[in-house]
Design a protein around this nucleic acid. Structure first.
Ligand SMILES: [Mn+2]
Ligand SMILES: [Mn+2]
Ligand SMILES: [Zn+2]
Ligand SMILES: [Zn+2]
Lengths: 147, 147
DNA sequence: TCCAACTTTAGAACTATTCCAAATACCACC
DNA sequence: GGTGGTATTTGGAATAGTTCTAAAGTTGGA
């Protein structure tokens, strides 16, 4: 089962109804490796659903988050929440200049997660591992701009 | 040099002035192991500085963050930014019910950080490692409440 | 097909955070 | 130890991301 189907199944399992808008949102989340904000999803889908409301995007994202199908990563320096459709343990790298977030596979992240599970009394529901800085492109621009 | 002095030094190094309000904010950040929000700091210090403004707290926190002396951890399920005065690599554990954040020392976190530095082309400025779930207390309450 | 329940929509409401300009206070320099 | 230039504080207004609301539209089980 691919990610798109996983997301839809998560909705159905919760007794939620499948609407064209929700399908589109899940497809977008599944088929891109971006970590979009609600507004970015909204802007992208507006072409396809001219009448779509931002509230619908938030609504669907909230459901997916509450089911644990996606993660809220938080801000990338832009004061808006970015969402991650990949709930497998991995490192996220945010650029505080262009506000893009990429994934970084990690050998140690699994051990980290196990450490948390073992050494805390918490019932762990999820996590966000995010480092931030300047991406190569934005570093270059910073140098060029400073000449 | 203790954490309080480190924070004040960070401000001075930036050519910032030391005010009683800033001292109090730095002392609060240094002497508690909490991960307070701007509002919590404001409420705590209001007794000591009845005329203090929320804007002052935000102002000081922003300066400290921009210098890298403290970290912005993001929300603990309460839609407000929590700050971390400890910039040494460690795991943070947030309870999404009572919105408290605690620290969890980690053996693997150092390796994770090195992994990021080595495998990415980013200029890394900081990071936040935060797992969330239910703390022991809130788990207990959840069970009792369900009876 | 039918309909109760759920979802979408548009816009208002909410609230954390930022901005602003006037009053105040720090501190480098004398 | 005083002064003055300038950064900081303050309180309130402004901003913007997110949530709420109620009317209109859909979904999917019966
Ligand atoms: Mn990711
Ligand atoms: Mn911490
Ligand atoms: Zn960038
Ligand atoms: Zn708790």
């Amino acid at each position: 089962m691919n990610l798109y189907e996983t997301l839809l199944t998560a909705l159905k399992t919760q007794g939620k109804r499948i609407t064209p808008q929700r399908e589109a949102i899940c497809r977008l989340l599944a088929e891109s490796d971006e970590h979009p904000t609600a507004r970015q999803i909204y802007e992208t889908l507006k072409a396809q659903f001219p009448s779509m409301s931002l509230a619908t995007v938030y609504n669907t994202l909230d459901v997916l988050v509450s089911v644990g199908a996606i993660n809220r990563l938080g801000s990338a320096g832009d004061d808006t929440v970015h969402y991650d459709a990949d709930t497998n343990p991995h490192i996220n790298l945010a650029c505080i200049k262009c506000h893009r977030i990429i994934d970084l596979p990690s050998e140690h992240i699994q051990a980290l997660q196990e450490e948390v599970a073992r050494n805390s009394q918490y019932r762990i529901l999820g996590g966000r591992v995010l480092y931030y800085g300047l991406c190569p492109e934005c570093q270059r621009e910073a140098v060029e701009g400073g000449r």
